[in-house]
């Protein structure tokens, strides 16, 4: 379990994340939704210690992410962010092998090779393994980074807007992959999503943020409602049930 205790981040006079208390489960898919500037990405960055917090604590299974050795945290939690991709000339396989760094420090063990092979297989990258990552399409590259996180083999996998720049084929493919990860391997997937319908269809739990605070938190049936979504985004939604899923329409 990830315990977030009174976590706060301020830039100048603007409080981006305001005393957030949350407990993230140790399995299943949890989505963070909310308008731009709600503090979702900032929250995730702090939970993964990429960004320092101004106040508050985060602990992963009792390990304080800010105080514990980075190595120790890296075996429990990984994050995939939408940042500028690396300038390093590496192949897909080399990238995925980096995922083993917390376990092997560059000296790959047979166990590491097995984990890398499995991650490549799982993300359907076997044929692309020897291709340099800068030659890949956006969807392929995203899969390569997911495979790296997979090879890291942490219980908690955080993803910051993983569907950015992906078409619906690749977006759906990635969401299925993440769902499978949670179901087959019992991992806890926490992701920031802009598309509320992906959140609705694939999540066990949805956390909605607005102005640096958690305003709704619950299963999709509770959060994907006309009232709750209207409250989070400040616009009108109509929610329909399509094939058992709750789908929000907001186009008119």
């Amino acid at each position: 379990m990830i315990t977030i205790d009174s976590l706060t981040k301020t830039y100048g006079d603007t409080t981006v994340v305001n005393h957030v208390d949350l407990q993230l489960p140790d399995s299943g898919v949890t989505s963070l939704i909310g308008p731009n500037g709600a503090g979702k990405s900032t929250l995730l960055s702090m939970v993964s210690r990429i960004l320092g917090a101004d106040a508050g604590h985060v602990s992963v299974e009792g390990v304080d992410v800010f105080k514990a050795p980075s190595k120790q945290v890296a075996k429990k939690l990984s994050i995939l962010r939408q940042d500028a991709h690396t300038t390093a000339r590496i192949t897909v396989q080399e990238l995925v092998e980096f995922g083993r760094y917390p376990h092997s420090h560059g000296r790959l063990t047979p166990e590491c090779h097995a984990a890398v092979a499995e991650a490549l297989e799982y993300c359907d990258l076997v044929d692309l393994a020897q291709r340099p990552i800068h030659q890949l399409s956006g969807g392929q590259r995203q899969r390569a980074y997911v495979a790296m996180v997979l090879a890291q083999d942490t219980r908690y996998v955080l993803l910051d807007e993983p569907l950015n720049n992906l078409d619906m084929v690749h977006a759906t493919g990635l969401m299925r992959l993440l769902r499978r990860l949670a179901d087959d391997k019992g991992k806890s997937i926490v992701l920031v999503l802009h598309d509320v319908n992906y959140a609705s269809v694939y999540s066990d739990r949805i956390i909605a943020m607005r102005d640096g605070e958690v305003v709704h938190d619950g299963p999709p049936e509770a959060v994907i409602s006309e009232h709750a979504l209207g409250d989070v985004y400040g616009m009108e939604f109509s929610v329909h049930t399509v094939g058992g899923d709750r789908i929000a329409a907001y186009f008119r």
Binding site: S48, K75, F98, Y101, P102, H105, G106, Q152
Partner: peptide
């Protein structure tokens, strides 16, 4: 050298991989 290799992935990935940046 191994740490430098990890560092070449960028600051955030290096931290994620457990490097004391």
């Amino acid at each position: 050298a191994g740490k430098l290799d990890v560092l070449s992935l960028g600051r955030e990935r290096a931290i994620t991989l457990g490097l004391d940046y």
